Amino acid sequence: MSPSPLPPPKIALTDDEWREKLTPEEFAVLRRGGTERPGVGEYTDTHTEGVYQCRACGAELFRSTEKFDSHCGWPSFFDPTHSDAVILRPDDSHGMRRVEVLCATCHSHLGHVFTGEGYLTPTDQRYCINSISLRLVPKP
């Protein structure tokens, strides 16, 4: 059974347009589904209050109030800002069964979400998100 098709993105650019807007590292993760190495992202251990936006399009994705220390090497959140801020889709790549997290506005790859890992969060979910997919706007 194949996954249902995604709704069209609200922001749709060509690969060349994305390459002009993003660094090569950002493009590799956001537009090609790559993953940054664990522990190297700028937001892994950040506790600054604010809003996390999609680095590609600026859509609000997560808030610092939903961020928690999972010690997994990537920023972790237990819930997106709005239920429609992200799209979840099955990901069976690399011999694993996972759930990919995409920005609902531009369909950029953000990371994966995991359930039932035993973290003491209200949702029992860990949105494991690449720092390079995010931009933190600190609370004024």
Rank of each mutant, 00 (worst) to 15 (best):
N130A: 03
T105A: 03
V99Q: 09
F62K: 03
C54S: 10
S83E: 15
T121K: 02
T81P: 01
G111A: 06
A12R: 09
R31D: 11
L88A: 12
L30Q: 13
E66Q: 15
S83A: 15
L134Y: 08
C106W: 10
I87V: 15
T23A: 01
G33K: 01
T44S: 09
E117C: 05
V29S: 03
Y119C: 04
E49H: 12
V101L: 02
S93D: 12
T35D: 00
L6T: 04
I11R: 04
R37D: 13
T115V: 15
S108Q: 08
K67F: 04
E66M: 09
D91C: 11
T123R: 00
D79C: 09
S108V: 10
R19H: 09
T123P: 12
K21D: 00
L120T: 08
C72K: 02
S131W: 11
S4L: 09
T115S: 13
K10S: 10
P9V: 04
Y52A: 04
E100V: 05
P3I: 00
G34E: 02
H112M: 13
D16W: 00
G111N: 06
V86F: 10
R126H: 11
T121L: 06
H107L: 12
P75M: 06
T44L: 06
P7H: 08
Y43N: 06
R98D: 05
R97I: 07
F77K: 01
V99W: 00
C103Q: 02
P138C: 00
V101T: 15
P38D: 03
E60K: 14
I129F: 02
K67D: 04
G39S: 06
G33N: 03
S133Y: 05
T123Q: 04
I87N: 02
A104M: 10
C128A: 08
F77L: 06
R89I: 14
T14H: 03
